[in-house]
Design a protein around this nucleic acid. Sequence first.
DNA 1: CATGAATGAGACTTCATTCAT
DNA 2: GATGAATGAAGTCTCATTCAT
Lengths: 210, 210, 210, 210
Amino acid sequence: MPSDQKLEYILKHAAAIFAEKGYDRASVRDISRATGMSLAGLYYYFRSKEELLYLIQKHAFSTVVEALEKELQTLHDPVERLYFLIYNHLRYFLQNMDQLKVCALEVDTLNGYFYEKVAEVRKRYFEVAQGVVQSILLLHQPSERDARLATLQLFGSINWVYMWYNPKKDGGAREMSQSIVHLFLYGLIPAAGEPSRAGQRAGRRYIAKT
Amino acid sequence: MPSDQKLEYILKHAAAIFAEKGYDRASVRDISRATGMSLAGLYYYFRSKEELLYLIQKHAFSTVVEALEKELQTLHDPVERLYFLIYNHLRYFLQNMDQLKVCALEVDTLNGYFYEKVAEVRKRYFEVAQGVVQSILLLHQPSERDARLATLQLFGSINWVYMWYNPKKDGGAREMSQSIVHLFLYGLIPAAGEPSRAGQRAGRRYIAKT
Amino acid sequence: MPSDQKLEYILKHAAAIFAEKGYDRASVRDISRATGMSLAGLYYYFRSKEELLYLIQKHAFSTVVEALEKELQTLHDPVERLYFLIYNHLRYFLQNMDQLKVCALEVDTLNGYFYEKVAEVRKRYFEVAQGVVQSILLLHQPSERDARLATLQLFGSINWVYMWYNPKKDGGAREMSQSIVHLFLYGLIPAAGEPSRAGQRAGRRYIAKT
Amino acid sequence: MPSDQKLEYILKHAAAIFAEKGYDRASVRDISRATGMSLAGLYYYFRSKEELLYLIQKHAFSTVVEALEKELQTLHDPVERLYFLIYNHLRYFLQNMDQLKVCALEVDTLNGYFYEKVAEVRKRYFEVAQGVVQSILLLHQPSERDARLATLQLFGSINWVYMWYNPKKDGGAREMSQSIVHLFLYGLIPAAGEPSRAGQRAGRRYIAKT
DNA sequence: CATGAATGAGACTTCATTCAT
DNA sequence: GATGAATGAAGTCTCATTCAT
């Protein structure tokens, strides 16, 4: 087996183990066991456990961002672009759930050089996404859906908050609640005839009662 | 200081450290340092590091769920109820970001009895939330908002997927993309005059091209 | 409960725990649990765990030696004296197997003053026993076997008892004493002209007197 | 040094330390010091302190039983067989007093799998021994004493040896074996007509053969 | 007499990593 | 390329013991 393939082989197993047990609980010995290689033998392919995590994250984010940027060049309809943004993300990570977990949970595990390098890719990804969303701010349309999925997405939105919350930018609990409720209820595209700021009113009304 | 308060004091500092370094990287010694107590002294209040994590999670979830259930008894307007669901969550966790982090990231860290106990509370929370969302499925109204917040929420939705994704229930990447796009664009409340299933159409159109 | 009885109560439970788990594996906490007393409360009755072991050993050996010396004053037949030596030992220790174990296994656990004190009593016991054995040798023709070896083997036999004693299989102290005396005196191969069952007779005679 | 020898080297030192301080009081660090190896280095050879004890006990008992079984195949005279049983035991354990102590005192220290495995070997040993004793009983007229009790007493005698053995006073394995066999067979009181020093002769005869 | 709370010391064990082969 | 053997550092936890109350 050529050396390149062997590295990929190791990365795949390592991602699976990091995903299952978490980076810290996982030991290089676990990876040795999973790959069938000797402990010392692994160190030919990476210099440290941290580099191993870095290789996994770098690879995953780069793959996703590159595919996204390539396809966006051929898409011009804003809704199609948004759709592809999400589709691309899910397409890759649902097939590689291990890597999503490792990328999502172990974001702050890396330090120094490794951290910076991954942060660059993540930033690039976020900026592309933000551009797509921005170009949507004009359109409209609704649909039916089941409560389960909606609830889970809502939970995702609010649980994910710890990843980005900044009191100065995002305001307090009240303001954020209003914004989130509004988005959740009416979506990104304000339909014609919307009774503007209703969510906000609901919030205010509740607050007044307290 | 009474013993009860001392436990809370320890829990608070422990949560801060678990949040900062992650459960595994954090050592009981770190907590000893942060609390100013001796290493052995801490073990008077919990029997193991894992129990300590359990106490933090149990306490956080219980507090939130209990406050939610209590207030919902007095609220009848569906929008107000939804608003409070989110407000209640954010109110508690924005003030206790440490605990949110610990609850969100270290969900699968506990095992056996500890895991089950926390899982029970989490399930109760989800069911209450799902009930609230379900009772909304009738209303309507939109608004304006900034791209940043929307993007971040979107990221939350899709990054959170690893927490709940079940291929049998949730379908593949395409179906999920469509549902998520739709919710994101048009929200939970179909506005009057919505060109029904537009999101799905957008998805189909893209897929057709691939 | 008077303080003296309480100490005995503690000693009994402590012996049971030392016997079951071994002195080192047993923790003062175990004793606290077994006695229903608080950890700190125990320390009113002894100054250290080692003293606790000392108290158990001292008490056991003293009890046995004193009973032995007292009765020997009234016994003059060498065989009867031997029989009583063994019977006395087994009588006490089969009823207090815990203490036998603690005395046999933890002989070298004590140090310094505690060790010396117990060693004195043990020495006294051994000398009395050796005297009894010697007076048997004189009865009969001399031999190259010295009393020392015989006595030590005898002790081996009776101290090893805790390893295998099973009341259902092995009967009580009386029966066992008789068997042991008999084997010790006449050996496995009854030589021609052996005064058959002499040990048993000796036992019976003694018993009759009691 | 090959890996096998290194393990034996560790076992020897560990046995010495366990014998001296007792299994519980002995720390793995003590063994590290005694062997000149690093603490962690030791764990390459055993997975836990308990396994280390297991290895010692297993090795000692197996060695003794195997040597016994092998030689018994070539011996047919019951007295010679008895003599060899004892001689074999003492020969090995007087040279390895540490291991005798560890085997005798820490019998109940092991748990679960480790305990069972050693118990098997011990049982095998006892059964062989009991067979030897029994074949002596058959030689001569029967008696009320059953072989079990006799065997157990015999074991007591020889296992207790570590408590008192002093090379200067007590001679080597051969002499002691002879004395013990003699006492065991003919008892303390040589009956008239005893084939004087038969045990010794038996011993000598056997020795002559070696 | 008794105890809740606390502590320093030290136990076993695992880990990431290295190096001679 | 690969590995058996080894190690320093660090982790969690338990223990005997104390002291203010």
